[in-house]
Design a protein around this nucleic acid. Structure first.
Lengths: 378, 378
DNA sequence: TGATTTAGGTTACGCGCGTTAGTCGGAGGT
DNA sequence: ACCTCCGACTAACGCGCGTAACCTAAATCA
């Protein structure tokens, strides 16, 4: 019989069989045991009176190689009693598949877009995969710490990740180190400036459109726009969307109502002052401001309040980015367009899963919607 | 000679030797090669004309077992040419040490204290260790997702992490799942409500003290305090520190000047209104507000400005937490006391390193200083 | 009744690497 | 001329596990 073989083995390995014999102790005892040398599959096999192979089959529940229900139960019990825990590293080594993805990002440094990680984590968790996060200090592609980024990717590859995610804090073009090409790679919130890596970015244009559409719908026709650095993808897309919305309403974008500023509260304050003071109230002064990010909206609030104007009574304000800490705590709470960080992270993992499975992906560059979040400033 | 042995081996393994023969190609070729089946130490050994053992010795630069300089160089060249990359999993399996720590935290969910992760990451990186981050959705110890937290720890243990970090978003007591006790565990920004796990928490008391000391130093003697929920550790500690500072100046804490509110901007606004309206200006009205968090300070700003008062001219304001997005963008910028998240994360890793090395740690509960950040509101 | 299938396993090999216990040829000592 | 010692390596084993190939007794079939 099978059992006799296993028991014979146990007899020739007194130490192991001794362990198994007294293993039905308390939880604490189990923990102590597990710590000192690690319960292995062999231990489980001996306790259940079967071969290690059988245990392996059961634990990775292979439907084929038929194992009797009774045996499965005995093995499950042994696993419980011994507190067995699979060794992920050994499994990866033997099976040549790690179930790990890696994400390299400076987001660890800049909490702003940490939701990308959250989205990716959650999706990976759902797919029963592990997401290894490697930090990268670099703020721009040619920064002084390029070495750190390379090292991060290298470390991830040493872990034999099956795919790589590369995420940026703000939407821009990046140069990905060459070593990343050794496994499937997907860019998040950025795009490949030289190669053809698939990427996932926010749909800035549509975001800009819905923002302005919302203001038009509220009856505003003179809309001031507080712009970012006009050269970055976010500004280009959002402004184009704004233009589209105006055009659809038969309006044109008045260049005098567009002011660029530093992407800070101070910058927003200054820009808002410029726009508001250019025309007297009621005579061309805009009745709404579209701020291309929430920090600038924060400054705009001050400028508006300083002039004795109310929000949204006199001036409606709409932001962009949905930086919770700002948007949800400004008074009144800021209506804004959200950057879909979580969704981008999740989509990144799904795209990676498709890639590693050899399936085709939807498109080289996938756009994710930026939804409008209604609060109280319009 | 040594070489003849190795070459003999190569001759009996035509596939491998063929690979080695054309391996000095372009970077792209190397990458392709590395991908399809992985360059192993054996490949390196063959190319360098030595045994695998020798390669292993050199790569883990063991000073003892003397290897000639010449051989080391030959091996280094082979590593370069083949694009060899060690397999972390296999190494961990063979050496029984993983060099991995795990951190389980709901911080992934709540970006507020993401700096803990950053600090831990950076320190781990310096120590040449890898930090595995596992998410946990639970907001409080008895939340509905306790199962997820257990699963997270389980997953980390399956990776054979050598130590565990457990971090909370806000300073509080927690109950750590039992399975965490299988490896050294350190709590960050929280403390063990029932056991005796070592923990690292902010020094709230000293933080409260320096805040009030700063206000006293600026000449304020009537200081309003906008309190949090009075029962949480943060409130207790900060208030005690405030009391200490006042006592040192021969003053007492006027209970009428302490108002608790909801820990939001609205709550801060309401509390500030209560305090400011309780006394007429100049006749007992406080000239400074110590807000126990920055969000409440944000609301206090509104209350102050609404009354036509200036900051810091009429009323000085000091916050707590240093939530960058708020503190650095309020106008005027908010002077506040910083929670040392990064430092706590780093100290957590260092403590874990000591623990896993069997060294004693400084104390069961380590306090980390909360530094005062001077901006423009005092 | 002997041949064949099938259920329920088992044996044996290898994944990539760390590590202990050698091996081997030559320099130095007597 | 013999022994010892040392420098520079190598052979061989095992880490925990997945998996292809094989085995055996009972059930089924011709």
């Amino acid at each position: 019989m099978a059992r006799s073989t296993a028991e014979g083995k146990a007899a020739t390995a007194p130490k192991a069989s001794g362990e198994a014999a007294n293993a039905a102790g308390t939880a604490a005892a189990k923990a102590a045991k597990a710590r000192q040398r690690g319960v292995t599959m062999t231990d489980v096999a001996q306790r259940a009176g079967v071969s290690r192979t059988t245990v392996s089959f059961v634990l990775s529940n292979r439907a084929d190689a038929g194992i009797s229900e009774e045996t499965k139960i005995r093995i499950a019990e042994a696993v419980q009693e011994l507190g067995y825990r699979p060794n992920a590293g050994a499994r990866a080594l033997a099976s040549q598949r790690s179930d790990w993805y890696g994400i390299v990002t400076e987001i660890v440094t800049a909490p702003f877009a940490v939701d990308i990680i959250k989205g990716a984590q959650d999706q990976a968790w759902l797919d029963r995969r592990f997401l290894l996060i490697a930090p990268s200090d670099q703020a721009d592609a040619h920064g002084p710490n390029q070495g750190m980024e390379d090292a991060a990717i290298e470390k991830l590859l040493e872990q034999r990740v099956e795919g790589l995610l590369y995420a940026a804090t703000y939407h821009r073009g990046v140069h990905v180190p060459e070593s990343a090409s050794e496994v499937p790679t997907v860019l998040i919130n950025c795009f490949d400036a030289d190669g053809k890596l698939p990427s996932i970015v926010p749909d800035e244009r549509t975001g800009g459109r819905v923002a302005v559409e919302r203001l038009l719908q509220a009856g505003h026709t003179r809309i001031g726009i507080i712009n970012l650095d006009p050269d970055i993808p976010a500004a280009i897309g959002r402004l184009e969307g704004a233009r589209e919305a105006l055009a659809a309403a038969g309006l044109e974008l008045d260049p005098e109502l567009v002011v660029s500023g530093h992407a800070t509260a101070d910058g927003g304050y200054a820009a808002a002052c410029t726009i508001l003071d250019r025309y007297p109230e009621g005579e061309g002064q805009p009745t709404a401001l579209f701020c291309l990010n929430d920090r600038m909206a924060m400054g705009a609030y001050d400028a508006i309040k300083e002039r004795g104007l109310t929000i949204p009574g006199d001036i409606a304000v709409i932001g962009f980015d949905n930086q919770e800490l700002i948007a949800a705590y400004l008074r009144p709470k800021l209506t804004t367009v959200a950057l879909p960080f979580e969704e981008m992270g999740a989509l990144g993992v799904r795209t990676l899963a498709a890639l590693t499975a050899g399936q085709p992906i939807a498109a080289d560059q996938q756009l994710v919607d930026c939804p409008l979040l209604e609060r109280s400033s319009v």
